[in-house]
């Protein structure tokens, strides 16, 4: 069953094309790794999927529902941003952050979610006192409290040390395998994508490849082409910035 279907998605910012005619679908229980250089359009793709960007050409369907017409699908989607953005001195405990926006009576679920990401013992600490890796686990817990069918993570391990990254990956693996949550995850880490994801989408403004992970990683020609195209995009991106 298709959880997400993207048809001919094109996004432009002030005349510059960020995504060019992207089409692919994501199945239930997929662990999709989206790879691509900086400026490839990964965050733009997520912003369209989450309804943050609404001006795009083409169509996106979540659980068969057009994202332009309704926002109900967001109830079943958890989102973990690239970097936790909040006021450093924000006076809120870990538990309060997970509780934000929820209805009353969710305490048991909050405790379970914190346990699921192995952070329960920090639940009474102020959020700003935690490391970036721990904060990202808090945001996964926050996403899990809503019982999501899909979890979207935008380069979630940027700036996180190796040990925390390993813990993070093992949590994602458990969520996908034991809790049947569809994972859509963008990353620069090809080794991790190779290890964890069953599907891969290579993005570089256009969709370079979408399919089974093994197919991509066992094809040296494909990887070579992807690396060359990424390098060109990387240089172009730096020339622009």
């Amino acid at each position: 069953m298709n959880v997400v279907e993207i048809k001919n998605l094109t996004v432009e910012y002030s005349g510059v094309r960020a995504l060019d005619n992207i089409s692919f679908s994501i199945n239930q229980n997929d662990f999709l790794g989206i790879i691509g250089p900086n400026g490839a359009g990964k965050s733009t793709l997520f912003a369209c999927m989450l309804g943050i960007i609404t001006e795009f050409k083409g169509e996106i369907y979540f659980f068969g529902e057009n994202v332009r017409k309704s926002k109900k699908y967001l109830r079943d989607v958890g989102y973990v941003p690239q970097k936790p953005v909040f006021e450093k001195n924000f006076p809120a405990t870990v538990k309060e952050v997970v509780r934000m926006g929820l209805k009353k009576g969710s305490e048991k679920k909050i405790d379970e979610a914190l346990q699921q990401v192995w952070i329960h013992e920090l639940s009474h600490r102020r959020i700003g006192e935690l490391s970036v890796g721990q904060q990202q686990r808090v945001f996964i817990a926050k996403a899990l409290v809503g019982d999501p069918k899909v979890l979207i993570l935008d380069e979630p391990v940027t700036g996180i040390d190796k040990q925390s990254t390993e813990i993070f990956y093992s949590i994602l693996h458990d969520l996908n395998q034991k809790h049947n949550i569809t994972i859509i995850w963008s990353s620069h880490d090809l080794d991790a994508v190779n290890k964890l994801a069953n599907k891969v989408a290579c993005l570089n403004k256009t969709l370079f490849f979408h399919g089974v992970s093994q197919e991509f990683f066992s094809n040296e020609e494909l990887i070579k082409q992807y690396s060359e195209s990424s390098m060109q995009q990387h240089m172009h991106h730096h020339a622009q910035t």
Binding site: L74, Y79, P84, F90, M100, G101, L102, G146
Partner: peptide, 19 residues
Amino acid sequence: YRQLIYSTFNEEQAKVSGI
């Protein structure tokens, strides 16, 4: 209370959560 705190804490994430 909970919705106001969330939108104060992180506007974008609150929006994505349907607030």
